[in-house]
Design a protein around this nucleic acid. Structure first.
Length: 281
DNA sequence: ATGGCAGAAGCATTCTGA
């Protein structure tokens, strides 16, 4: 099963490229961020024509996430409130549509668009921290169900210095600060694995390049788009790549898609036998 | 300190992103 994540920076502006990419890769699941469109104006038909199902959680102009899948999309959860109890902070966070989750082929896929945070300090940075705090609660609640889980998305956090072209220039700046990294680490620690790092230990691999200052030409990028898999899925992980070439297209998104291959045979669809190994790593 | 570039809204220019 090929699972991909792509911040497309407007699905309507990127539709032709995304459809061409989908036909070329034959991906099973595509998780989108920054769709930037209200639900009723999402271009459903373009995907349904190819045999995909589509679930969206969008809003006008900003943010917006979607899960697109060849197999049935089950048990869809929109926003934080379908997973954790609401309060004033969550009501505030929910004004921005940044999280959707569903089960596909027996795997819970949680697709997120983490706030950027603008700069430190700022109100937007506070919003990012609040969002991450509540995302931790969300994951803790979701993990009670012992589902095989995959967290995909634009995290707007470079997990280590290896994930930035010039780490010294961005020391404790937005997307690279100790606090953001610690919060991400705290969410994934012991439970999830950064799929890309299973195969590639070196620096120099980016998923986002600023539109400005010829950043892509100069290959000045960041690795901020991630697919984390639960420990139980690690034996199934066959590959994890960043499709850099999509960033070189005409009128590209500023992000490239990231994609993993999970080898889920029919015999493995029921993972109950693996529950014992679930929390070991 | 600010701008660079891109998209949406909407028709000039501002807001936002990362």
């Amino acid at each position: 099963m090929l699972i991909a994540s792509w911040n497309v920076n407007s699905i309507r502006s990127r539709l032709e490229q995304v459809i061409n990419w989908l036909i070329a890769t034959n991906a099973d699941v595509l998780c989108l961020q920054e769709t930037k469109v209200i639900d009723k104006e999402f271009p459903f038909e373009s995907f349904e024509r190819l045999g995909y199902q589509v679930k969206v959680y969008g809003q006008k102009s900003y943010n917006g996430v979607a899960i697109i899948s060849k197999s049935d999309i089950e048990n869809v959860k929109f926003g934080f409130l379908d997973e954790i109890e609401g309060d004033e902070t969550i009501d505030y966070l929910e004004t921005q549509k940044r999280i959707i989750s569903a089960i596909v082929n027996g795997v819970r896929i949680i697709n997120i668009y983490v706030p950027n945070g603008s700069s430190i300090p700022s109100d937007k940075f506070d919003f990012k921290i609040d969002w991450l705090k509540n995302f931790k609660k969300y994951i803790s609640a979701q993990q009670q169900r012992n589902e095989l889980t995959c967290i995909t998305g634009d995290f707007n956090i470079a997990p280590t210095d290896q994930d930035i072209h010039a780490p010294e220039s961005y020391r404790n700046k937005i997307m690279a600060s100790e606090l953001e990294r610690k919060m991400l680490e705290d969410i994934v620690k012991g439970r999830f694995i950064d799929s890309f790092r299973v195969f590639e230990k070196n620096s120099g691999f980016w998923s986002w390049w600023d539109y400005r200052n010829r950043a892509f030409d100069l290959n000045k990028g960041w690795r901020i788009d991630h697919i984390y898999i639960c420990n139980g899925l690690l034996p199934k992980l066959k590959s994890a790549v960043i499709q850099r070439s999509e960033r070189g297209n005409t009128k590209p998104s500023d992000h490239a898609p990231v994609i993993i291959n999970l080898d889920l045979d029919k015999n493995d669809q029921n993972f109950e036998d693996e529950d014992d190994d679930f929390f070991l790593l």
